[in-house]
Simulated scan of single mutants.
Amino acid sequence: MKILLTGALAYDGLGSEPVRQDVLIDGERIVAVGQNLPKDGAKVWDVSGLSLSPGFIDAHSHNDWCAVSDDPIPGFEPFIQQGITSFVTGNCGASAAGFEKDSPYLSEVGGGTFSLDDAFKPYGSVEQFFERTHKKTPCNLGLLIGHNTARASVAGSANRPLTEDEMQRMMGLLEDGLKQGACGISLGLMYSPGLYAPPGGAESCRRALPQVRPPAYRASKGGIQGVHGL
């Protein structure tokens, strides 16, 4: 289905002055922007007097937990109504993917703030997260893989350093998540179980992100590291 929006004051998102022009949408894609575009069989919506811009990006979101629910639409609707169409999710160390699916600690993944529904528990990997959410989520998602999620799945909320085996398993989850499409790693050092990571624990996670440098959320060759700490 084609829709032609006419008469809007359009902002390009690059800082330029807005220009009154038309926008042609074909299915899920914007295919043309300009003045006096031909109808070309499109349904015309006159939006004169309104402003039009690219969708906004929410760079600190937990909507990955909405995305894995049976019906994610209600969780996204309030954001869409505010013009937000893209999300960086998995923040504060708590992602809805990147855990051992057979872990005995699944009830502790999410740190008590978020929880996995029964339909999601057979999954666990970032790859499976995107497979599950791609078609039913109405917005664009980028996922940070949560240190707390990975740690909780190998050792629960234990207030102690990880054993060598647990550390290797946790690092394996983080590295696999990056290979499978996560855009970075998030740390929540004020939340359980990230709170119990010893000094240097954050540095261990950074080894999975070559060339990442502070401050938090700086994009680099290796990905993004988001830190929510004390």
Rank of each mutant, 00 (worst) to 15 (best):
S51I: 06
A202Q: 08
S157A: 15
G110S: 12
C66S: 14
E100S: 12
L37Y: 07
L230A: 15
Q128N: 12
L209Y: 04
Q225G: 14
T137Q: 05
A219H: 11
A42S: 13
S153N: 09
P214C: 08
L209T: 12
G112M: 11
V227R: 03
N140Y: 06
E127W: 09
G75C: 03
H134Q: 14
S157C: 10
S95K: 07
L143S: 01
A119V: 01
L174Q: 02
Y123S: 12
Q225S: 13
K39G: 11
A216Y: 00
S157T: 11
H228G: 08
V19Q: 15
L143H: 03
G34M: 12
S115C: 13
S153W: 02
W45S: 02
G41K: 10
Q21I: 03
G156V: 08
D58A: 04
P215L: 05
T6L: 03
Q21M: 15
G111V: 09
P210N: 07
S51G: 14
P74M: 05
C139F: 00
Q21S: 11
P18E: 10
C205M: 14
G55Y: 02
N91K: 06
L5D: 02
E77N: 04
A155F: 00
W65N: 03
G184S: 11
P161E: 13
S61G: 07
N159R: 13
